[in-house]
């Protein structure tokens, strides 16, 4: 046994024993980082030599079950559930979609890779989403437009009530104010209510109502779009296939007939489907 090996075994006996036989630490795996330093951030670093690698927490089985129940059983709007648990709306939606698939598989007795799921969950920090927990992630982040990162001097009268909407206009005609960019703008009114001394329960109820209304509006808009698209289509059954005729307008190709909005293969313009360095993998499933 050489010196390095001796050192290693000594390390394994003393400090390394924490990693070899980790104490049951609930939702956190024991990473090597926690051996090196006892700080909270070090506990999420599996590779002590790679300081930039921080393990991100995932939702536990119970948390996913709780989210699914709040939406599908209790019937809360997605926005309310997102705000309640501090989980991004897209993640809430994904949980519900995946849970639906899981339930479908369970019902049809399809085998599931449970040992794999268990193994993966034991290797990453897991969030249970209990009441006392910190929010899981930021839910109302807004994308920052490049135009809004400059300094602007906008002369305006003192008496004018200069709002965030005005500020957005000043940056550019197409720049939206943050209130319209955020995913859950109803939280603004909720915070205002709280600040004005409305009872928390009442403010919460108002928030849930507003969230439900906005989601209903979105659903109505979407179904109207589907209906409108369907109205433009003519379905004709002919034995083997259904022929779907979509009504179009030849004028959509513009005056010179070369507009991108026009229907069909375009004439006299290069077609880039074989061009190099252009991603041709489909980016969505339809």
């Amino acid at each position: 046994m050489n010196r390095k090996q001796r050192d290693f075994y000594r390390w394994l006996k003393n400090v390394g024993s924490k990693v070899r036989d980790p104490p049951a630490s609930g939702n956190r795996p024991s990473y090597l980082g926690s051996v090196k330093s006892s700080s909270d951030s070090a506990a999420l670093k599996p590779f002590p030599a790679n300081d930039k690698f921080v393990s991100q927490p995932v939702l536990s089985e119970e948390a996913r079950e709780r989210i699914w129940k709040s939406v599908m059983v209790t019937g809360l709007p997605l926005k309310a559930v997102s705000a309640q648990y501090g989980v991004d709306m897209r993640r809430v939606a994904a949980v519900i979609r995946l849970k639906a698939i899981e339930n479908e598989w369970e019902a049809s007795h399809k085998p599931m890779a449970l040992p794999y799921a268990k193994a993966v969950l034991s290797m990453v920090p897991v969030a249970d989403l209990r009441q006392s927990d910190q929010p899981f992630e930021a839910i109302n982040d807004i994308p920052v437009h490049k135009y809004t990162q400059q300094q602007l001097f906008v002369p305006t009268s003192e008496s004018r009530h200069f709002t965030r909407a005005d500020a957005a206009k000043a940056f550019g005609e197409h720049i939206l104010p943050p209130d319209e960019k955020m995913r859950i703008p109803e939280l603004i009114q909720f915070e205002r209510d709280i600040a004005e001394g409305v009872k928390p329960q009442e403010a919460q109820d108002n928030f849930v109502t507003a969230a439900a209304r906005s989601e209903d509006e979105l659903a109505a808009k979407e179904s109207a779009r589907v209906e409108r698209d369907e109205a433009r289509k003519l379905r004709i059954e002919s034995g083997r296939f259904e022929f779907r005729f979509e009504k179009i307008n030849v004028d959509s190709s513009g005056k010179d007939g070369r507009s991108r909005r026009g229907v069909g293969w375009r004439y006299g313009v290069p077609f880039n489907d074989r061009r190099r360095a252009v991603v041709k993998i489909p980016t969505k499933v339809e």
């Binding site: 379905r235 296939f241 259904e242 979509e246 009504k247 030849v250 069909g264």
Partner: peptide
């Protein structure tokens, strides 16, 4: 080329045609 609807499991095929009926 006949196509299937994504979430339709009946295997029914359809063909897509766009047409300006008026023209």
């Amino acid at each position: 080329i006949p196509k299937k609807d994504t979430y339709d499991e009946s295997g029914k095929l359809h063909k897509d045609i766009k047409l300006d009926v008026t023209r």
